[in-house]
């Protein structure tokens, strides 16, 4: 408002602005609502969305790509990844158990970057609540289940992203 306006101008201006405000709310009433009906409808997650890291399996072999090298466990800032391995008859390291304490994960994604085979990938799984602290520690079976599958013809560069899409379907089907 400029100075030196008369009282009548201000009174009229007040009523005009009140009417303008009413018009704004009335127009907004017909707009598309921003609220999402959450459990029924879901967000469209971007491909590089960071859910918890999981171990997708290869559809050809039915196994994950983990070498049990332990890079992820070493690089993890929270030190929440535990890997147990065993050495088979052919003298190769095989993964025995893979645990992630999700309750302390900060979704930085360093573990997936450190993974030499890109077998560990950030999924689209974000519903992590549970009733007990123990349930928050995800074991190998759970990580396989949440990870879903790699696409049939894996390309080394973008397996992570593709597996994410697979994950979403797997998670959706699970519900």
């Amino acid at each position: 408002m400029r100075k030196n306006r008369s009282l009548f101008y201000e009174i009229i201006y007040t009523f005009i602005s009140l009417a303008k405000g009413m018009a704004v709310t009335f127009v907004n009433m017909w707009r598309k609502k921003v609220t999402l009906m959450y459990p029924e409808k879901r967000w469209e997650l971007p491909d590089n969305y960071r859910g918890i890291p999981t171990l997708p399996t290869d559809p050809a072999t039915g196994k994950d790509k983990c070498l049990a090298c332990g890079s992820c466990a070493r690089v993890c800032p929270e030190q929440i990844i535990t890997i147990e391995h065993e050495v088979g008859e052919d003298k190769k390291r095989r993964l025995k158990e893979f645990k992630i304490d999700v309750s302390r994960c900060m979704f930085c994604g360093l573990c997936t970057e450190a993974c030499p085979t890109k077998g560990l990938a950030m999924s689209h799984h974000y519903e992590l609540t549970s009733f007990t602290k123990e349930e928050m520690v995800y074991n190998l079976e759970k990580l396989h289940e949440l990870g879903g599958q790699f696409p049939a013809e894996p390309e080394p560069e973008n397996t992570g992203e593709d597996s994410d899409k697979q994950d979403e379907k797997a998670v959706g089907g699970e519900k």
């Binding site: 709310t25 009335f26 907004n28 009433m29 707009r31 598309k32 609502k33 921003v34 609220t35 009906m37």
Partner: peptide, 8 residues
């Protein structure tokens, strides 16, 4: 009020 605030 929800509709006017673009809520449901």
């Amino acid at each position: 009020m929800g509709f006017m605030q673009v809520r449901i």
